[in-house]
Amino acid sequence: MSLIDRIATCFASLGPLGRLPASGTWGSAAAALTAPVFFMPAPWAVRLLVLALVFVGGGLACDIVERNTGIKDPGLCIIDEVLGQWITYLPFAALTPWQLFWGFLLFRVFDILKPAPVRASECWMPGGYGVMLDDALAGVYAAMALGLLLALGL
């Protein structure tokens, strides 16, 4: 395995987290725990840039991991969970710990259930970008649901 392959695998898997059981949940938890420090305090434009970089970098990295493993959307790739979880928090400047938890839970539900068109979106883009896109859409659903809960007084 080349150095580029090792770097891509480390990025796509968030280091050792991608090798844990229920790796997607661990990836989402890592994103939820780091969002209040590394993502949410940033200005809106910076957050959009971060999401774009995670999407592009994650797509490239997941593509390499798919090619090396021969598996479509391998469980090892959890950088897509970071993208989706941070998209869930994108509209909000600050959230309480309970609101962060609800955002985490909502994203996991939409990511697992994959309501239309989330499941179909896996095929809209080739390789690793399909891996990233379905979680991005699950994050959009979760952001809307969290916004609704907050509007209702959560």
Results as ranks from 00 to 15, higher is better:
Gly15His: 00
Trp98Asp: 10
Leu150Val: 06
Trp102Phe: 08
Leu33Asp: 06
Val46Gln: 10
Leu3Val: 13
Leu3Phe: 15
Pro16Tyr: 07
Asp73Tyr: 07
Gly147Ser: 06
Ala8Trp: 04
Ala31Arg: 05
Thr9Phe: 03
Thr69Gly: 07
Asp73Gln: 06
Leu90Gly: 10
Ala145Trp: 08
Cys10Gly: 08
Gly139Asn: 04
Arg6Asp: 11
Gly103Arg: 01
Ala31Asn: 10
Ser28Thr: 15
Leu83Asp: 03
Phe107Met: 05
Leu3Tyr: 15
Ile78His: 08
Ile87Pro: 00
Ala35Ser: 11
Leu33Ile: 12
Ala30Asn: 06
Leu106Ala: 11
Ala61Ser: 12
Gly27His: 05
Pro117Glu: 10
Val37Leu: 11
Asp73Gly: 02
Trp124Met: 13
Leu146Pro: 00
Leu150Tyr: 10
Met1Ile: 11
Thr96Met: 14
Asp63Pro: 06
Val118His: 05
Val50His: 09
Ala142Trp: 01
Glu66Leu: 06
Gly130Val: 00
Gly18Met: 02
Cys62Glu: 07
Arg119Val: 05
Ala52Cys: 11
Asp5Gln: 13
Asp80Trp: 13
Gly128Met: 01
Trp102Gln: 02
Pro74Leu: 12
Leu150Thr: 01
Ser23Lys: 04
Val109Asn: 09
Arg6Tyr: 08
Asn68Gln: 14
Asp135Glu: 14
Ala151Pro: 08
Leu105Asp: 03
Ala22Ser: 10
Gly130Ser: 06
Pro36Lys: 14
Ile87Thr: 02
Leu106Gln: 06
Gln99Ile: 07
Val118Pro: 03
Gly15Ser: 02
Ala30Cys: 10
Leu20Gly: 00
Phe11Val: 01
Ala145Met: 09
Gly70Asp: 12
Gly27Ser: 13
Lys114Gly: 02
Gly70Arg: 13
Thr25Asp: 12
Met132Tyr: 03
Leu3Ser: 14
Leu3Glu: 15
Leu83His: 04
Cys10Phe: 12
Gly103Thr: 02
Pro21Ser: 09
Pro74Arg: 12
Cys62Trp: 05
Ile7Leu: 14
Ala8His: 05
Leu76Ala: 12
Ser13Asn: 06
Ile64Pro: 00
Met1His: 13
Val54Met: 09
Gly147Ala: 10
Ile7Lys: 07
Ala12Asp: 02
Leu154Trp: 14
Gly153Asn: 15
Ser23Val: 05
Leu95Glu: 04
Gly70Lys: 10
Glu122Ile: 02
Leu14Gln: 01
Pro74Met: 13
Leu17Glu: 03
Leu49His: 15
Thr69Ile: 07
Cys123Val: 11
Ala138Asn: 02
Leu95His: 03
Gly128Leu: 00
Glu81Asn: 11
Gln85Glu: 13
Gly58Arg: 05
Pro126His: 08
Leu106Glu: 05
Ala29Asp: 03
Leu83Gln: 04
Leu146Met: 04
Ala32Trp: 15
Asp80Cys: 15
Leu17Ser: 00
Ile112Glu: 08
Ile4Trp: 11
Pro115Leu: 12
Ala151Ser: 15
Ala29Tyr: 06
Thr96Arg: 14
Gly58Val: 03
Ala61Trp: 03
Gly84His: 04
Ala22Trp: 07
Thr9Pro: 01
Met1Ser: 14
Ala136Met: 00
Leu51Asn: 09
Trp102Pro: 00
Pro91Met: 13
Trp102Ser: 04
Gly84Asn: 01
Met125Val: 10
Leu14Thr: 04
Cys62Leu: 13
Val82Glu: 09
